[in-house]
Write a protein that binds this DNA or RNA. Structure first.
Lengths: 201, 201
DNA sequence: TTTTCTATTGAACACTGTTTAATAGATTTG
DNA sequence: CAAATCTATTAAACAGTGTTCAATAGAAAA
């Protein structure tokens, strides 16, 4: 029994070793520039063996994809201590922006890389959770009288689009050239302009 | 003399033939799934010869990238007939959205594919032109009393972010799963929610 | 006619993701 | 203990990729 357990432990450890190596290279070089051979050689391993632990390159990617969302969701949930839902709503956008700044590579992996696997339920459930969390906060705002006359879903979509748009431009470095200020400042100013707008609603 | 001119004409034609083939495959399959060999075989040509006309794969991509922006800009400029700048502003967002719907592949190529070449002036001048066009329209709105107290640049950035966010979610198919309506409808509803918000400003 | 130039080719190089037969080592079974 | 089985690993192979380059055929210029 304990022999089998040790075996299993070793297997879990190898799984983790591969994932650690993959995370390092994926986040550093992005999806296309990461090769199975690179992941393997980083841990003095043979490329073929990786397929003993993962179905293919995409499965490794998806593991990290989920990892990123777990990290992201935890930062969203950390705002639950804020009592006022509208304050929480505003803070959520900032969490989004800060996440894109501090974990640009994760953000790319999570939102901007197109993998071959489409939006299949399994892997994207956690992404949907994030959206539903945002939707819930907006609902709480509406219950308290905010955003009257605006459809909850569309408002959710709009908020998400705005923040994601800001972060996309940032992550693809499409911001710095067009305005003089630093990209980080611009993100905040763009978001504040949005908040100033929604404030009057 | 006329011999040299004929030669040059043939060279231009070959250049165009390659680009036509590349456009077809790039827009159909995206950047990574398009190979030089595919582009060549489509026109019964040898892969190596492509490098006589283009420096590398990225140069072909950039040619199409610029092509997309020219098409995009022309659709923006078509709105110049609209007298009222605020009406023009609202229509600009719709042009963006419609462009993403009708030319999803161009949109991906132009805004979502990360090429190795960064934001070097040359290729991105035309992208900047689009932003400055938007900024100009917003300025005209402000001159007529709209958007008072809001910084022109930040408002430009925010508008761009919102519309680009909507289009990004659409192009990456991150929309359909989370809400029940069709993605095309959602884009419009999201944008209309934004307009309803800005209307009060 | 010979030389020079121009456009083209196929082969080669160093990569890529993935599959698979062979294998060595440990574990289980007879 | 020996034989059979299972488990994890490997190197080699396959089909694909972007790119380079020596060789070459054909036209133009000398």
């Amino acid at each position: 029994m304990s022999i089998a357990k040790r075996k299993e432990q070793e297997k879990i450890e190898m799984h983790k070793r591969i994932l650690d190596s993959a995370r390092k290279i994926f986040l550093e070089k992005g999806y296309e520039q990461t090769s199975i051979r690179n992941i393997a050689s980083e841990i003095n391993y043979s490329p073929g063996s990786i397929y003993f632990y993962f179905k293919d390159k995409n499965e490794i990617f998806h593991e990290l994809h989920k990892e990123g969302f777990r990290l992201f969701l935890s930062q969203m949930k950390a705002l639950d201590i804020i009592e006022d839902p509208y304050e929480r709503y505003k803070a959520l956008g900032l969490v989004f922006i800060r996440f894109a700044q501090n974990h640009t590579d994760y953000y790319n992996l999570m939102f901007l890389v197109s993998e071959t696997g489409k939006s299949e339920g399994e892997g994207f459930q956690i992404a949907q959770d994030s959206i539903e969390h945002l939707s819930g906060v907006i609902k709480q705002c509406q219950d308290k009288g905010r955003f009257q006359g605006l459809n909850n879903k569309y408002l959710t979509l709009m908020t998400l689009s705005l923040v994601h748009g800001i972060c996309s431009l940032y992550c693809k470095d499409r911001m710095s050239g067009f305005f003089e200020k630093s990209s980080e400042e611009l993100m905040l100013h763009g978001y504040e302009t949005f908040i100033a707008l929604i404030e009057k609603s």
